[in-house]
Design a protein around this nucleic acid. Structure first.
Lengths: 231, 231
DNA sequence: CGCTGTGAATGTATTCACAGCG
DNA sequence: CGCTGTGAATACATTCACAGCG
């Protein structure tokens, strides 16, 4: 039973499921996160008609430095042309593929509280290739209802529903007490990746990716900094 | 004009407003994030009646190692007893104070879309000392209405409202296009810390703390890992 | 020339290992 | 003895600086 030791808290904990991957890349986790950022900036550039971009320009837009950009990209190949820079559309497509976003992903939502409902309606998810194809809850009031066109299923049926609809990822927006059970049941049913919003460590078995997002911790980071500075 | 260069993406960007603080501490940002986690675990332990806890036990619960715990704490003082460990209640209180959570904070919410509404209802915020005392939006349909007991004010009035209600922090849950303006106006009005959910880099002026949370990036971290492992 | 791509250098964070106090 | 607190060692991430290609 792995307890995802490394990353933690609000932003991490890539499970150690590192089954011999496609890439030899020693890309760090922060580096991969920046790729997502570069991708968004490249979308903007593409929309604005830019054809090429240098690492210097990209760095300015991303709030980092040119060497960082080049290093991040170099983990995955060499996409630029010396002397001129990177072709915007091409680089964007490459990053999309690196991130695994060149296809759509089937996602379940567990827990339909405030946060769950907001995430359901979150347009960015569908825009970047995530389709919510199943919703789980334990509340009898909610089960059977349709939210955003998806029927709420009882957690007990998850094995069946996951298989039937091909669920690959799950967003866990349940109360703290339920998060562990949800992850256990769904990973047994074959779900390989979890995004957990419940503010507790969740244990995983086998090759499962889990990352935690904790909204309160982010605010606490602010109060620490302000309090520390004596404000 | 600082562009908060360092951290970025989903979990960072502590503005460089490091006005000579109270602590000499070289506590790293990840270290501070872990403190928040330890605090939650200590709450659980306290509730379950534990009087003392060792760094080993705490590490097991937090999914890290004992040395990490001791090092994280040592940045702020020495709170344990050699031979026995840490007194749970006492350590919890110390961490609370370190994080600046030994008082309540006045928070504004900007943008009352899905996400904004979910954050408003998010019980954890109030539980950890954050009171939403103002809401800003630009939509005439929303202005004037009360949500969760707080009237929605037009963004133009923010200077007046911020002063009047003593707003210290702001959660930015607006569309991308509005985030920059919101941060500019509110920081001019005296708000010192921002938690930004809009997936774009926002520039800040002066001693302002800003961190970004990007929900999509977290999912992209999962797809990267799974795609990479060939799944 | 101007830019990328990358080893080498620096800077940060984590872990080790042990001295020292309760 | 058992544990904390912490310098020293290691591992990791970022930045420098320059060789080399278009």
């Amino acid at each position: 039973m792995s307890r995802n030791v490394e990353g933690n808290l609000s932003g991490n904990g890539s499970g150690n499921g590192n089954g011999d991957g496609i890439y030899r890349s020693r890309a760090s986790d922060p580096s991969v996160r920046r790729l997502s950022d570069y991708h968004r900036i490249l979308e903007d550039l593409e929309r604005s008609g830019a054809e090429v971009v240098s690492s210097a320009r990209l760095a300015a837009l991303a709030g980092t430095n040119p060497a960082q950009i080049r290093k991040d990209l170099s983990y995955f190949g060499s996409f630029g042309k010396r002397g001129s820079g990177y072709r915007v559309a091409e680089l964007r497509a490459k990053i999309l593929a690196i991130l695994g976003l060149d296809r759509r992903w089937k996602v379940a939502l567990a827990g339909v509280g405030n946060l769950g409902q907001a995430l359901l309606a979150h347009k960015e998810f569908s825009r970047y290739g995530f389709d919510i194809v199943a919703i789980f809850d334990v509340d009898p009031e909610k089960i059977g209802h349709r939210i955003a066109g998806v029927e709420v299923s009882p957690l007990e049926d998850c094995a069946r529903v996951v298989t039937l609809r091909g669920v690959e990822l799950c967003v866990v927006a349940t109360p703290v007490a339920a998060a562990q059970v949800v992850v256990e049941k769904l990973s047994e049913a074959g779900v390989r990746g979890f995004l957990n919003f419940a503010p507790r460590q969740v244990e995983t078995r086998g090759k499962v990716e889990l990352r935690n997002v904790n909204l309160t911790i982010e605010l606490e980071g602010l109060t620490f900094a302000l309090h520390k500075a004596g404000r």
